[in-house]
Amino acid sequence: MIVNLLSRAMMMSTPLLFGSLSEVFSERTGVMVTAIEGIFLMGAWAGFTAAYITGSLALGILFAALAGLSVAILYAFIVVTLKQHQIVTGTAINILIIGLCSFLQRVVFGVPLSPLTVEPLKKIALPLLSKIPLIGTIFFNQNILTYSIYILVPLGFFILYKTSLGLVIRSTGENPEAVDVSGISVSKVRFMTVAASGIMCGIAGAFYSIGYLGMFTTNIIGGRGWIAFAICFLGNWNPIGAFIGTLIFGLAEAFAILMQSNSATMLPNELFIALPYILTIILTISRKSFNVPSKLGTAYIKEN
């Protein structure tokens, strides 16, 4: 049972990692992607719809990435190009996307008589590795998106700390004037990073619809985008911290699913459903040493 729980925890961590890692990158440039909940939802819808119509999960993921990208571009246009307020803009976009997805769902599928489903991503057992006792089932019998986080975390860390691109990204959030003086456009760095985050978050959204449940509802994300957002804070804007955070939350979520199917428990189901949210509150309160990018949330206005 423990192996089963941990294997599910790995799986549930996957979209949270996609989300929080992209949040780490954009927040390092000074932009919080507060539209993350909407981008997740848009990705979930586009992924499901494309997969249902074409019958190909790969096309589903591609469309989810494109849909996430489009929402992120709208968000970046308003907060980076027009320099408007990040939290307010994100909230508006999230409301827009809820309306858009339920409307488009109706346009494309009408009112279906039975629930629409697709076959979700299959688990691929890696040869040899999956045969290792315990570890094999937990880490090496997962779907393709979960495998990709094994590459994304070290890659993210490497880009952020060991490349000149990473240096530019980090400096844009700490000292945009210096970046500007060195001839690099602050707005361009921020815009591109948010756009790339949109691709990642769109895929993360598709994980819920086609990677796991095989269906779409408008409340499918249910605050998971916000949890990914919180993990970025709790992981101190560091890819490794984000990875640890997503494992904790993946475990909490897997635990909640396990406890809900276990009727012998004394505690109410609702407590387990609320567990990841309660955990976020407790961790937000108890974390002391935050390493906030100093220009996080402020627009860069060039002095003339």
Partner: peptide, 22 residues
């Protein structure tokens, strides 16, 4: 026409209101 068009309309209005600050 599904009533979700209203949420869509509200979403568009909000986005334009934010742009109008600019």
């Amino acid at each position: 026409v599904p009533s979700s068009i209203i949420n869509l309309m509200e979403g568009f209005v909000m986005v334009f209101v934010i742009i109008s600050y600019f």
